[in-house]
């Protein structure tokens, strides 16, 4: 296993807060929700596992204890099987089973169809199905999170690309003060 500090990108002397911050940033970046429907979701899951193990390792070595994570998902009816197949990466089989589903108007049907389309790279169709699922069940957090993460690259952009030019930044204040000083100097 790689050095857990290296995995989290923190120095060995980092305090607990720094480690927690680094862990949270990486967990957010590689969270399965951000890769839903992405063919590389298993690589992201692998990375996530590595991050979790590194964090657990550091916690264990520092506190002499350990913690574990348990994930459970419960679903009912025929959609459960399709979800299992999707989680196993067997998308073509999942698509076949989805074609046999009788209830093609439910939110879950649209959600799973959307996930399969996204995996194939059919982003236009995939998004439409996800939007339909969200419209049918607006309170479902899973559906809305997947839809929200679709356009989000989940990566840190190297530049400020917010395009916000209307605010007053520190530079604007400095510039204002310098201009005022120049004007006052001329009037003296």
């Amino acid at each position: 296993m790689r050095d857990p500090y290296e995995v989290l990108g923190v120095p060995r002397g980092a305090d607990d807060d720094e480690i927690k911050k680094a862990y949270r940033a990486l967990a957010k970046k590689y969270h399965p929700d951000a890769y839903a429907g992405n063919p590389l979701s298993d690589l992201a899951a692998e990375k996530m596992k590595e991050i979790n193990e590194a964090y657990d390792e550091i916690q264990k070595s520092r506190a002499g204890g350990g913690n574990s994570r348990a994930h459970a998902a419960q679903n009912e009816g025929s959609f459960y099987r399709i979800r299992t197949l999707i989680n196993q990466g067997r998308y073509s089989e999942a698509e076949i089973y989805l074609g046999r589903v009788a209830d093609k108007t439910s939110a879950e049907y649209h959600f799973l169809t959307g996930i399969i389309y996204l995996h194939k790279g059919f982003m236009l169709e995939g998004r439409k199905h996800l939007e339909e699922a969200c419209a049918l069940e607006p309170s479902n957090m899973e559906y809305s999170a997947t839809l929200n993460n679709l356009s989000r690259a989940g990566v840190n952009m190297p530049y400020d690309v917010s395009g916000n030019t209307t605010g007053c930044s520190g530079c604007d204040i400095c510039m204002g003060l310098m201009c005022m000083d120049m004007i006052c100097g001329c009037l003296r």
Partner: peptide, 24 residues
């Protein structure tokens, strides 16, 4: 929006490569 989704998927794939150069 669909083009943005594609480029977001591109960036997620690129990001999953781990160590890489020419990031910016």
């Amino acid at each position: 929006t669909t083009l943005k989704d594609s480029m977001a998927a591109f960036l997620r794939a690129y990001e999953s490569a781990g160590d890489k150069s020419y990031d910016n």
